[in-house]
Amino acid sequence: MEFNPSNNVVKRCLQGMDMEEKGKPEEASKFFLQAWNEAIDDLEKFIAAHYVARYQKNVSDKLKWLETALQFALKINNDSVKSTFPNLYLNIAKCYEDLRDTDKAKENYELSISFNDKPSDKGPFYHGTKADLQLGDLLTAGGSSNYKTGLEMNHIYFTALVNGAGLAAELAKSNGKERVYIVEPTGNFENDPNVTDKKFPGNPTRSYRSQSPLKIVGEVTDWVRMAPEELQKWREKLANNKGDIIN
């Protein structure tokens, strides 16, 4: 079960987020509820319920939708959703606190803390670039950001989704050939805070970063490439992005 930006439910949620940014909460709520009504599998229902919860007018209804999102997240229980558990349990705890149920609030606060650990993802991992590298080479932090001019990155980034690495390679600022390398972290790594819980709950793109080098152990030449018009949309989105990068 893999996150897919072309999925209809994901698209409905993106439409809802667009309405949020335009200051139209009622329209946003309609899109999120439509996403829930169209959701079929556990991942779709988890994502949609997460957003429907944000637009509930009272605490009891918000709690119901958050616990619905949790129910489906626990069913999935894979690396794409595990990183949402701290935030999800925290929001549930706050609802119980508002409802003056101190025992349930305490229980969920403790669960939130218990899930604040390092990623359990075992890979394989990929790094997309336009650099011509060899097996055994080390990728290190300190490179220039592909998303913000003049920013030197304190981490090296990678993903467990080969198509995500392919997209990163296509968006890299270089005239070289797109390359997707299979990499092994040589030290500790963490969820990429620039994506985790920023748009979609958890870390659906299984994106990570490390201050330790990544060792190149192979290369992938077959991944799903974006159509030119879709790729151009991504480039325009990055060019217009005014948000800060957590470095």
Rank of each mutant, 00 (worst) to 15 (best):
N4C: 12
N4F: 11
P5K: 13
V9Y: 10
V9C: 10
R12T: 06
R12E: 09
C13K: 14
C13Y: 14
C13M: 15
Q15H: 13
G16C: 06
G16N: 07
M19N: 10
M19I: 03
E20Q: 15
G23Q: 10
A28D: 00
K30A: 08
F32H: 14
Q34A: 15
A35L: 12
A35K: 14
A35P: 06
W36G: 14
N37K: 15
A39D: 09
F46C: 10
A53E: 15
Y55P: 05
D61G: 05
K64R: 14
W65R: 15
L66A: 11
T68H: 10
Q71F: 07
Q71T: 05
K75I: 10
N77V: 12
D79A: 12
V81G: 11
V81W: 13
S83I: 04
P86G: 00
L90K: 15
N91K: 12
N91W: 05
N91F: 04
I92G: 02
I92W: 06
A93W: 09
A93M: 06
C95D: 08
C95F: 10
Y96E: 08
T102Q: 06
T102G: 00
K104W: 07
K104I: 03
K104E: 10
A105W: 09
E110K: 15
E110P: 03
L111Q: 14
L111S: 12
L111W: 07
L111T: 10
I113T: 05
S114D: 00
S114M: 04
F115W: 08
N116M: 11
D117L: 12
D117W: 11
D121H: 02
D121A: 02
K122D: 02
G128H: 12
G128D: 10
K130G: 10
K130S: 10
L133W: 04
G136F: 00
D137A: 02
L138M: 06
L138H: 03
T140E: 11
A141V: 12
S144P: 03
S145I: 02
T149S: 13
M153S: 05
N154C: 10
I156D: 02
I156S: 03
I156F: 02
I156E: 02
Y157C: 00
L161M: 11
G164S: 08
G164A: 04
G164R: 07
A169R: 02
L171V: 07
A172Q: 11
K173W: 13
K173L: 14
S174W: 07
G176R: 06
E178D: 13
V180W: 08
V180F: 08
V180T: 10
Y181E: 02
I182Q: 03
V183Q: 01
E184P: 00
G187L: 01
E190S: 06
N191K: 02
N191W: 03
N194G: 01
T196Y: 06
D197K: 06
K199M: 15
T205G: 09
Y208G: 01
Y208M: 00
Y208T: 03
R209K: 03
S210C: 01
Q211T: 06
Q211Y: 00
V217H: 02
G218N: 02
V220F: 04
T221M: 07
T221D: 06
T221Q: 08
W223E: 07
E229Y: 10
E230W: 09
Q232W: 08
K237S: 13
A239C: 05
A239V: 05
N240C: 01
K242I: 09
G243A: 13
D244W: 05
I246K: 13
